[in-house]
Amino acid sequence: MIDNNIYDQASGLRRLTKPTLTKVVAVTGGKGGVGKTNVTLNLALSLAQQGKKVMVLDGDLGLANIDIMLGVRAHKNLGHVLDGECELADIIVEGPYGVRLIPATSGTKSMAELTPAQHAGLIRAFSSLEEEVDILLIDTAAGISDMVTSFSRAAQDVLVVVCDEPTSITDAYALIKLLSREHNVQRFKIVANMVRSYREGRELFAKLTLVTDRFLSANMELVACIPLDEKVRLSVRKQKVVVDAYPRSPAALAMKSLANKVVTWPVPKAPSGHLEFFVEKLLRNEKTSEIEDDYV
């Protein structure tokens, strides 16, 4: 079971945290290779360019890559935090435009298969974080692991990145179905990525909602159509994101438009409205999982 001290730390954080409301957005997709990390980082830099204090958590705990994609050198990562070698604040690195990055490990199977105690350790690490943050973006792993569902349940908004491929649509539906039916996440914001036109993006959204409307009660909203753009590939080779390397390219303009929408999304004052509420919601997720395990 989770130590009550974790709950005490989260409660203490409420008293210590500055009054800034933190918007928590999980970026997910079900299938790998849909451009989820690219969307996350472009969104982060676009928001930072607007003067927002942005933090990005690499939620792909076994195949981390956000620091590599930005050409940032991370000397320590979440693996060191969980091993007790340092605090979460010690591993945070600064990226372009002041974006704060929380790097995870790469090529470490154990990090992709955390035990309940390690989950609790990760949550405990967040409860000690006192940085002022306007927007926390979580780049989740591919698939539907426990960490993907935990991060998605704890966030205020879930961005689902989808490509016009049968496997991408199928995997996105499977993720939405799991979160909707088993974890009570009912609102999803869809990003149609690497589409050849806005019309293709709308048609992709229609394909997805054809099955979600029929079998689920989830609320779906198309929030962005990101065009297929050669400049995205070129920017990745430069270890930059397209909004920085090619700010006037079609993909960059679409990313910036998405950022403009994100800042208008309301930040609820109920649990998850502050960064410490994000921690507490994760705690409740862990508590629920343990109770369910007791009855299996």
Rank of each mutant, 00 (worst) to 15 (best):
Y198G: 13
L179V: 11
R237D: 07
V236S: 13
K287S: 07
Y173I: 11
D146L: 05
I176V: 15
L78C: 02
S128I: 01
P19H: 00
M1L: 10
D157V: 10
E230P: 09
G62D: 02
F278L: 01
W265C: 11
G273Q: 00
V241Y: 07
L175N: 08
D134F: 04
K52N: 08
Q186N: 14
G33S: 07
H183E: 08
F151T: 00
Q239I: 03
V195M: 14
G12R: 08
I144T: 14
L208W: 08
M69N: 12
P266I: 01
L13T: 00
L283Y: 15
I135V: 15
L216P: 14
D229I: 10
M1P: 15
L136K: 00
M255N: 13
S249K: 09
L208M: 11
K207D: 11
I176L: 06
R15A: 11
H80F: 04
S289F: 03
C163H: 08
C86A: 05
V158Y: 07
I66P: 04
L129H: 02
G33E: 06
E276Y: 11
A218M: 10
Y173A: 11
N285W: 04
L228C: 08
S128F: 03
V81T: 03
N42M: 07
P103F: 00
V263H: 09
G29D: 07
L222W: 10
S249C: 12
G35V: 05
T140L: 01
D293E: 14
V263C: 10
S11M: 14
L41M: 13
L159V: 10
P250D: 08
R14V: 00
P166K: 04
A174H: 06
D83L: 09
V81S: 02
A89V: 12
T17I: 10
V39I: 15
S127P: 04
A154W: 03
T115L: 04
